[in-house]
Amino acid sequence: MIDYLLYKEKSINGRYINADIIQPCFSKLPFPLIHIGNSVDGIEINAFKLGSGQKKILMWSQMHGNESTTTKAVWDMVNFLQSENPLATQILKECNLLIVPMLNPDGANLYTRENINKVDLNRDAKNLSQPESIALRNLFKSFQPNFCFNLHDQRTLFSAGNTDKSATISFLSPSSNKARDITPAREVAMKLIVGMNKMLQKHIPGQVGRYDDGFNDNCIGDTFQMLGVPTILFESGHYPKDYEREKTREYIFLSMLEALKIIAEDKIDMYSTGDYFSIPGNQKLFFDVIIENPELVNPEIEQGQKIGIRYKEVLDVDKVIFTPEIVEIGALDRFYAHKTIVCVDTKDFGFNSAEIKLLDLLLKTKN
């Protein structure tokens, strides 16, 4: 059993992670950085290698600048791999890792999905219109990996199937064509996902989802899978009461190590593609907050209706603020909430109209 806290990189936390914040992590690496290019705004994009084995794994994080959980987990993994743990020794002996902790530093600065040109780098695999996209593709060509880990975050609205369990971690073995055929590369990625899911069910049972596999050759994962390299999409999702995604970070760390362990030990074929399809597909069934009985406070709302609220992530200097927004009013019978507010009496809450004073309400929370 790995003691995660021994390896957690304590210098980085929260949701806002930019290039300046991870510089101390780069600085303490005992090996040279590999400069793979610059962002549109001129920020260096760096990578580094770990291990001396024959099994080559390319991984990159923060392709979307506002998806930082996996970046934190990558540095936790790097700390582990530099330890004397026997698993770390085995992985470095069998594997050769090439890691890009932050592919989109401009987007990270601005806390946006796109780069500074407002281009989604994960929809630029064909056009290669942006320097960040070109840097990754050139790295892929020169390194010729045997496996790729595409590291992302997903929104709090996802459930693990048609359940009241949020999708804390989701995976995808991307499609290689419109028919979604199970090609050899896709099969290998599926088996690795099954192995990670088996481990995760011991920690977060029912909280692992399978991301939609609709084919899009503009996506980098689909492209690399088409090129015959097993590619896994990691999606960091919501763990209860963990909007800073520090707990999810731990499960991503454990997932990456499990995948590397399976690769290092040549145990991929121990797992079945059939079990991949038993992982429940993600559904969009969660609100951050559902308000029940709102008609007791606002008579303009019909009896039996509920208010669904989702948070908008807003950068305030160097901190992400979760701003509540009403996105739906209705029966919401099929939906779940990370928090539920039950209106009991008009004196309990301070709103008068459809423009609810949400901050007052959120103090009156029933979990």
Results as ranks from 00 to 15, higher is better:
Asp120Glu: 06
His152Cys: 02
Gln130Tyr: 14
Thr156Ile: 08
Leu157Ser: 07
Leu98Tyr: 14
Pro184Val: 05
Asn117Val: 09
Met102Lys: 06
Thr156Gly: 02
Asn127Ala: 15
Phe158Thr: 00
Asn85Trp: 08
Thr156Ala: 04
Asn122Pro: 08
Tyr111Met: 01
Ala108His: 05
Glu132Phe: 12
Asn150His: 15
Leu103Ser: 02
Glu84Lys: 15
Met102Thr: 02
Leu139Thr: 15
Ile99Met: 03
Arg155Pro: 03
Ser133Cys: 12
Asp181Ala: 06
Leu81Val: 05
Ala167Asp: 04
Asn127Glu: 15
Asn150Lys: 09
Thr112Glu: 02
Ser176Leu: 03
Ser83Thr: 09
Asp181His: 07
Leu157Val: 13
Gln144Asp: 02
Asn162Lys: 15
Asn138Ser: 10
Gln130Phe: 14
Asn104Tyr: 05
Val119Tyr: 13
Glu84Phe: 07
Ser142Pro: 13
Ser142Asp: 14
Asn177Ala: 03
Ala88Phe: 08
Ala135Phe: 09
Ile169Gly: 03
Ala125His: 13
Asp106Ile: 00
Leu97Ala: 08
Asn162Tyr: 13
Ala160Val: 01
Asp164Val: 06
Lys126Arg: 15
Tyr111Trp: 11
Glu114Lys: 14
Leu103Ile: 04
Pro105Phe: 03
Ser170Tyr: 11
Asn85Thr: 09
Glu84Trp: 06
Phe149Tyr: 15
Gln82Gly: 00
Leu92Val: 08
Leu151Asp: 04
Leu110Phe: 10
Asn85Ile: 06
Val119Trp: 11
Ile99Ser: 01
Glu84Ala: 03
Ser170Cys: 10
Leu81Ala: 02
Asp106Asn: 05
Leu87Glu: 02
Leu103Glu: 01
Leu92His: 12
Ala125Gln: 10
Phe143His: 10
Ala125Phe: 06
Pro105Glu: 00
Asn150Asp: 12
Asn146Pro: 07
Lys93Val: 05
Leu139Tyr: 12
Leu128Cys: 12
Ile182Thr: 13
Lys165Trp: 04
Asp124Lys: 14
Pro101Gly: 04
Asn150Phe: 08
Ser170Trp: 10
Phe171Gly: 01
Thr163Leu: 03
Lys126Tyr: 15
Leu136Met: 08
Asn115Thr: 08
Leu172Asp: 03
Ser133Asn: 14
Asn96Leu: 01
Leu81Pro: 04
Thr163Asp: 05
Arg113Met: 00
Ile116Ala: 12
Asn138Leu: 06
Val119Lys: 15
Asn127Tyr: 15
Ala167Thr: 12
Thr163Gly: 08
Arg113Ala: 00
Asn104Asp: 00
Ser175Pro: 09
Asn146Leu: 07
Leu121Phe: 10
Asp153Pro: 05
Ile182Glu: 01
Arg137Ala: 10
Arg123Ser: 07
Ser166Leu: 03
Gln90Asp: 00
Gln82Pro: 00
Phe158Ala: 01
Ile99Arg: 09
Leu98Arg: 09
Asn117Trp: 13
Pro174Ile: 08
Ser133Glu: 11
Arg123Val: 03
Ile134Trp: 14
Phe80Leu: 00
Val119Leu: 06
Ala160Arg: 09
Ala125Pro: 12
Phe171Ile: 06
Asn115Glu: 01
Tyr111Leu: 06
Pro184Tyr: 04
Phe147Pro: 14
Gln82Val: 00
Glu114Asp: 07
Thr183Ala: 07
Gly161Phe: 05
Glu84Gly: 04
Asn117His: 13
Gln144Arg: 14
